[in-house]
Design a protein around this nucleic acid. Structure first.
Lengths: 343, 343
DNA sequence: GAAAGTTAGGAAAACGATTGCCTTCACCGT
DNA sequence: ACGGTGAAGGCAATCGTTTTCCTAACTTTC
């Protein structure tokens, strides 16, 4: 692996090229007035010595570190990854590096991370997490801007970028209505879970607006395939008639799909199915492939990062910013309507 | 969000507590000889000013940044996350912060990241990636230690920490043999994929050692459920008799499980099934739940981080370090053997 | 050929913290 | 009264870079 050669300093470069440190600095940064020949000589020396500028020393002078912290409130998971990647992408374009901190749902650990980040003089902080529920701010009057992504802050003056989950649910419903479904059930996650609440409420709203009543009251359970399978049993046991199920997650939807297949109801022929999250593993693994609501988490992360950059440059965008979801239509809703029964 | 109060410096603290900067530094670091009263006064002033030490300035003096870089060669994914988390965990315990860099399979981008990290004077670098195949080193004679995790370096002198995939496959086979299966098929990923090759070779080995021949030659395909489903069709079409399938991934295994169920073969009664990766979403979603090989990626990440820390402290561990996989037994292999047919 | 203007590059003061050395002072024993 | 001893804390160099002056040497120009 090497572990050779110590880091060259600008003084080494200056010495090798026979100029003063100040001049070397100017040469490398294309600043000041120097002969072209000198500039090249210095640059060549730098190249030769493998000179990499000491960013820490530079920051000392400029006050900027071109570094941001990213804190996940809970563990890094399926939802934080795309957010994180989107942010990393947008920040990388702005030459910024990212400190990744995993909060592990532990407030002490989180505060420790905040302190560390401040100590490292990050230019800003992005906070993200597994669920969209608002959370207490990570600190008050912090010396750097903070943007909450996916998750949001309870302080309305904080900048939060969140998916418009209700809007996403509306789109799912509109789609189901458009393909002629009228007996629509909703199977989702735990009742206390913010996303489950929001989406269920949105479903109720849209159905009411369409002059319909739900096929059944929303079924709250777990975010799992097992619950999806179980929920079908509950619907059947209750004698509910339904020609569509909108699920709070793709995993639930997949469970529903399997249970329906097991009892011989065809998807989408008899029952149209829509999931939420647009998680490829589920939408593709599901038979038939699953129509789903996409929260565009990567775009959300990118947007959050861009807002952070703007805030760092003096133009904060306080408040809660909801970003639209979109529907990705696949086989599970591909049939407009089937009269009765056909192969 | 605040964006208030500029950062206090040690000079502010010194001024507020009426001592010199040097003394303030000693007080805060419990160094030098100071009256207890003075020490407390300084610490109180620091608290009052929300003083957070400027880590960059400190590093300037100490030469250590307590920072490491983590580069994913490809995109951050299902395999890099646990590695990353394990590493973050181990490094956090050593007070180190992690720079996350996403290589996106782009060598240029990767080299840019290496440069940036060196410029930020990281104490070390961890390289990881989606696949276990060896890759070219990220640089030669770098001034800091590098550890490859999951992925490995083609340079045998580099330190690489990898899962013992062959060993994992052996464990899967041993388990299947132990529950009395003798007609074992292997369905796995693309033939050119390193993991697929290694695991398939290991299967062949173990079967030979047991004096058995494979139920069929290894079936190479994609890392998907669809391929798993399709593979069952191929086995049947070929007239292959088999009482167990060992799959190269949990996704493939799940596809196999579904296809078997569709044609009425019971798992594990008629066919025992073992996956690879121990990915909860698949092992739990699968019916029945799936026995799988766990590469313990988080532990691997932790181990890599510990080796990096050791290397930073002057005790490198060059070479390739294979870490054992272990088998997690679930329902898909829970029945020792079923004579013929029963509910 | 001298005054003025340009140019190239050097010297040194930051930036924020650490640390080795030095000074000051109090206290001690003789 | 005086030197010795320790403790407390100040001073200044240092880390690597940037940037603001400043100086010396050329060019112009009349």
């Amino acid at each position: 692996m090497g572990k050779t050669e110590r880091h060259a300093t600008i003084a080494d470069v200056a010495a090798l090229s026979g100029v003063s440190v100040g001049t070397a600095s100017k040469a490398l940064n294309d600043r000041g007035s120097l002969r072209e020949e000198t500039r090249m000589r210095v640059k060549e020396a730098a190249r030769q010595l493998n000179f990499e500028i000491n960013a820490g020393a530079r920051s000392l002078h400029s006050g900027r570190t071109y570094t941001v912290g990213m804190i996940t409130t809970d563990t890094i998971g399926r939802f934080s990854i795309p957010v994180l990647m989107g942010a990393e992408d947008a920040l990388g374009a702005g030459q910024m590096s990212v400190f990744l901190c995993d909060g592990r749902d532990d407030p002490i650990r989180e505060q420790y991370h905040v302190k560390t980040l401040l100590s490292r003089r990050v230019d800003g902080i992005i906070v993200t997490g597994r669920r969209t529920q608002a959370r207490a701010p990570i600190g008050s009057a912090l010396p750097v801007p903070v943007v909450y992504a996916f998750i949001s802050s309870t302080d309305p003056d904080d900048c939060s970028v969140v998916p418009d989950e209700a809007g996403g649910a509306h789109k799912a419903l509109d789609h189901l209505l458009a393909i002629g479904r009228t007996r629509i059930a909703h199977v989702t996650g735990p009742e206390h879970h913010h996303s489950a609440q929001v989406r269920a409420a949105a479903v109720g709203e849209r159905l009411a607006e369409a002059g319909l009543t739900p096929a059944a009251p929303p079924l709250f359970g777990a975010w799992s395939e097992a619950w999806g399978r179980q929920a079908v049993g509950i619907l059947l046991a209750g004698g509910t008639e339904f020609d569509a199920v909108f699920c709070g997650s793709d995993q639930i939807a997949r469970g529903v799909a399997e249970a329906l297949r097991a009892i011989g109801r065809r998807v989408p022929g008899d029952v149209a199915l829509v999931g939420f999250d647009n998680w490829d593993v589920m939408t593709e693994g599901c038979q038939p492939s699953l129509t789903s609501v996409d929260m565009n988490l990567e775009g959300l992360g990118r947007a959050a990062a861009e807002m952070l950059l703007a805030a760092i440059n003096g133009s904060p965008s306080p408040g809660r910013h909801a970003r639209p979801c979109h529907l990705v239509v696949r086989e599970s809703t591909s049939v407009p309507l089937v009269p009765s029964a056909s192969a």
